[in-house]
Write a protein that binds this DNA or RNA. Structure first.
Length: 465
RNA sequence: GGUGGGGUGGCAGAGUGGUUGAAUGUACCGGUCUUGAAAACCGGCAGGCCCGUCAGGGUCUCGAGGGUUCGAAUCCCUCCCCCACCGCCA
């Protein structure tokens, strides 16, 4: 969530942010509500102040009189009762004002809060303006030795590629039919070596982050409270995307939501905390099962492992000082980790600078990493797919947007309270990453070479099939 | 799931209707003393919001929400969480 004071002082900054991110938030309505709210607050507090003052003045007197009343009788008793009643009537008027303003407040506060939560983090200046993913700008690409992006798979490798769908079927790595039987559409069963490969990628990614990059591995809840979803910025916008467990409907407890990324649990860890400067930066990673309803994606990527309701993901987050240069440095480093992993697995990829229209509410800057998937895209003249990049990673800088919502602060050198800056980035999401992994390492006979870095996690198996 | 106990400042721990945003201890920060450290002593030490150029003022917060009252950390209701024991159990 954004800083309301900044909104008041620089409303255009946020009007532009809404426009550039192609969102629909009535910033001016929020400004009007905010002003009305402050006016109410002022009136209410003035009345309260008066009330407290009177209360302090007459309170002890009433106490004394009531004490006397206990032992009094006859005329004396009547006199005391009247005196007490007179004193007590004084604050009644003020109490009415407070209650009145409270009603006004309740009339506007829900809308005020709802709008506030929707105002997006403004993109940084260098983020290219654009409407959506088509306007993202390629930053650079990388391919393993012997792979030329300009050539087709067949030209590169000397044979027609199979899609990951064919490969997993051929080796019995994934069973889609039974997955659907058990869980419905967009479900699957990882089978045998398929499961081992899936686990190998995840284990490798966690170990890499822990051993080579100094990130602390964590296990965090994937079933979380609503405030965690709001705090991390996924709600209200992403409400339709999350599975909702309505425990409260059973008469007790609170509702819960299944997280779509480990980021939620990792960032929720220090919500409402004031960290000591030297605890920063926090460098955490986690592997967690991720759940996504894929609402609104009906009919899109229906086949295969690309778009599914449940998957596993190694995620990394950094919480650092409120410093732009530091945030950028961490962003670079986090992306570097991903590149090292992709390169070590021999996967071709490209980095995209996402345009304003492709950013979410919470980020000010985002780099997507897309891996080359030979089995995607339309069929070429040889009847084989021409291949296509598919998003496998996303690295965001959130400024203080998320920590502000989570109320995650630290005291800076000067002793000033500040909201920390946050970043997050996919390390490896599987089984989606298995698509390029299988397709890029397939051999003419359909067997698949297991990248060397994964073999220790596969019991030494070097080839599938 | 049952029964009982409990949620107060970084931690510990007072406080059961009225100058208590909260005693005291401890931790932490600054100072005195010391060659240095420790000890001792002195001082400081919650956050949000609103108003104000500043100085400062006001208001809210004692698990959360609601209620009673002129006034609530203190009384009532609902919920959440923690601890102990019993039952059940991956």
């Amino acid at each position: 969530m954004i800083d309301l004071k900044d909104l008041r002082e620089n409303p255009d900054r946020y009007r532009n942010a809404v426009r550039d991110k192609c969102m629909d938030v009535d910033v001016d309505r929020l400004l009007a509500l905010d002003e009305a709210r402050r006016a109410i607050l002022t009136r209410q507090e003035t009345a309260r102040s008066e009330q407290n003052k009177i209360s302090k003045e007459i309170g002890p007197t009433i106490g004394q009189l009531k004490g006397k009343l206990k032992g009094a009788a006859g005329d004396e008793k009547d006199r005391l009762e009247i005196e007490i009643a007179t004193l007590e009537s004084k604050p009644a008027e003020l109490k009415a004002i407070v209650a009145e303003e409270e009603r006004h407040m309740q009339a506007i506060e829900p809308e005020w809060k709802a709008l506030w939560l929707q105002v997006p983090q403004p993109p940084t200046d260098e983020v290219p303006k654009g409407k959506g993913s088509d306007d993202n700008v390629e930053v650079r690409r990388w391919a393993p030795a012997g792979w030329d992006f300009k050539k087709s798979f067949a030209e590169n490798r000397g044979f027609k590629p199979r899609t990951h769908l064919e490969l997993v079927k051929m080796h019995g790595l994934v069973d889609f039919e039974r997955g659907v039987k058990i869980g419905g559409t967009r479900h699957y069963v990882m089978w045998g070596l398929g499961m081992r490969l899936h686990q190998a990628v995840l284990r490798y990614a966690v170990d890499f982050m822990a051993d080579k990059r100094g990130f602390t591995p964590m296990g965090v809840p994937v079933l979380v409270k609503e405030e965690c979803m709001i705090g991390t910025g996924f709600f209200p916008a992403g409400r339709e995307q999350a599975y909702h467990i309505e425990e409260s409907k059973r008469g007790s407890g609170h509702d819960m939501f299944l997280t779509g990324t480990g980021e939620v649990g990792l960032m929720g860890l220090h919500a409402d905390e004031i960290l000591h400067m030297d605890q920063l930066p926090l460098k955490y990673c986690t592997v967690s099962t991720c759940f996504r309803r894929e609402a609104g994606a009906a009919g899109k990527d229906t086949a295969g492992l690309y778009r599914i309701h449940q998957f596993d993901k190694v995620e990394q987050i950094v919480v650092c000082k409120a410093d732009d240069a530091e945030s950028r440095a961490w962003h670079k480093q986090m992306i570097e980790s991903v590149e090292m992993i992709l390169q070590s697995m021999g996967l071709a990829y490209r980095l995209l600078q996402c345009c304003t229209g492709d950013l979410g509410v919470k980020n000010e800057d985002m780099i997507d990493i897309e891996s080359w998937m030979p089995g995607r895209g339309a069929n070429g003249p040889d009847g084989a797919p021409t291949g296509e990049f598919g998003e496998t990673h996303s690295a965001s800088r959130l400024n203080d947007f998320q920590c502000r919502r989570l109320n995650l602060r630290y005291k800076d050198e000067a002793g000033k309270m500040r909201f920390a800056y946050a970043l997050n980035n996919t390390v490896a999401a599987s089984p989606r990453i298995l698509i390029p992994l299988l397709e890029m390492h397939q051999q003419a006979d359909g067997s698949v070479i297991v990248p060397e870095v994964l073999r220790p996690y596969m019991g030494g198996i070097a080839k599938i099939g």
